[in-house]
Design a protein around this nucleic acid. Sequence first.
DNA 1: GTGAAAGCGCTAACAA
DNA 2: TTGTTAGCGCTTTCAC
Lengths: 333, 333
Amino acid sequence: MTIKELARELEMSTTTVSRVLTGQEKKYRISEKTAQRVREMANQLDFAPNQIARNLRLQKTNTIGLIIPDISNPFFANLARTVEEELRRRGKMVLLCDSKDDTQIEEESVQLLLSRKVDGLLVAPVGEKWEHLQKKVAVPVVLLDRYFEHKDLPYVTTDSFFGAYKATSFLIEKGHRHIACIQGLTGTTPNEHRVKGYESAMQNHGLSQNITIAGSDYSMINGYESTKELLARPETPTALFALNNQIAMGCMKALKEYDFSIPDEISLIAFDEQPYFELLSPSLTAIKQPMEGIGKVAVEMLFELMDEKKVAPQMLKPMLIERDSVAPIPQKS
Amino acid sequence: MTIKELARELEMSTTTVSRVLTGQEKKYRISEKTAQRVREMANQLDFAPNQIARNLRLQKTNTIGLIIPDISNPFFANLARTVEEELRRRGKMVLLCDSKDDTQIEEESVQLLLSRKVDGLLVAPVGEKWEHLQKKVAVPVVLLDRYFEHKDLPYVTTDSFFGAYKATSFLIEKGHRHIACIQGLTGTTPNEHRVKGYESAMQNHGLSQNITIAGSDYSMINGYESTKELLARPETPTALFALNNQIAMGCMKALKEYDFSIPDEISLIAFDEQPYFELLSPSLTAIKQPMEGIGKVAVEMLFELMDEKKVAPQMLKPMLIERDSVAPIPQKS
DNA sequence: GTGAAAGCGCTAACAA
DNA sequence: TTGTTAGCGCTTTCAC
């Protein structure tokens, strides 16, 4: 069923049909009667214009490419949900790519999406390279979560420094002095900023000598093994700061296995809240990222870029959710 | 950068260029020298054919529509991950739609995807209606998770009856007699089969009179409120069977709030395993669905359908993961 | 071995 | 108020 057949059926030109169907009847002063007939017939034969042809002609696909490092990570799944919803509301569809935290897959995905002529790109990059996101990319790009400083690639993300500083200060206020930080993927901005936030807080409280950083990626296994390693050290930390939700899970697993009681023997705080945190025992204190905000702002930004407007990067403030995995300890200098 | 420009640059026809670039040089006996030159130039100018034009010409988009009720539910996020990976491996991309468990959005999504000429549809339907998935759908469709019996729509799903029967029997073997089931969305096949599995197990053990079914959808809030309601009844159940992961979370929340100790005062088992279940306190006994299998088999099936082969629906067996949320209770008839 | 030209289904500039 | 026609960028039939 094409517009041509529809036009033949109606005994009029494809032009007229097209104009009615694209809502331009007013503009071309098409008689209400004609318009009515077109709509009825289209409805009756339930004709839907071939979007591929349309896209080719219009040089516009109403499609946005979304590249995410791991859709099974609830953080990104949530992001994807908001983004999809926001885009749908604005008449766009989403081509989804999961890069599996692999820069090469990410680069390939960008190519694939560009050759499919997406109108824009929303990317939560792995974070190791950026050239493929900037050079020869003819469409607007907005980065999510991870980004690149000084690269003029617009982004929207959580204020990681702020969040980490807050989490660490919170622990310090509770009397903790030996706080270890288990980091995610090194070299990526959120990780570096979280680490810096942690370090700053430690330094500002005169605890520079106690700064302890372990770990290497955003996985549960990393949390698990880093925790075990930390527990094996001569001076066991009294608190752990896990830099994402999966690391925190690994920490809990290790602590459980080693029969460390949280928070009595060791406190735990996570960057990145998840709904089930409140159900864990003990419930997990966490830094909650403004997920909805990130998705919404990113889509907004992308639209502004598509309208050739200028945009400024955005850092959204996270908040601390106090639960039971952090206990005060008696002060001892 | 179009193939035309590339051809001009090379001083040959677009035909030849196209033939080389689509790997048909052998077929048309194009000289190796020419082919070489084409590839080099294409590479150098890093030319990538406009897929939209290609799709239009070929009447094929290498795109699959994936409709899912809620991508933020880890069950579906996992499914999406496997599906995306499998499809990428086979050279297809994924257009993602989140129906938010709303049949109307689902119907619209099908229309949108069809007008974009996807080559196939992978749908985890809300489960209330099926007409929009069968009538006038010109492309192959495979259903995930939820499906429709006797509707000739191929599906791949977990054997829900089997899993629920197993979970219930497990509780009965542990001595439980008053087992309540908190169900998900009524009217959907997995839910009905899980309920039937539960009922069958109860009946086969002579516990028909104790069958208790509460709840109405797959949400945490449903688990929460249904549990509270069950606890308020004169005869409190000794075990709860939650029909999905989110319901189970709601149960835990309610039990925690009411200071019911799991498993000492009440046992809990969930249909649908999640990685964090082992970290909950107590760790949660669950029926684990073969997620990877579902995704892979579904994609395979879709490809067979695209090759005009016949396929048979598949039910994959889940397995029971024993943890600490179920305790035996002394037998009393 | 290579090329000219038609055509995929649609929209819009130009014409009437 | 409506229609003719060119063309989006590609592939492929037919011709040489």
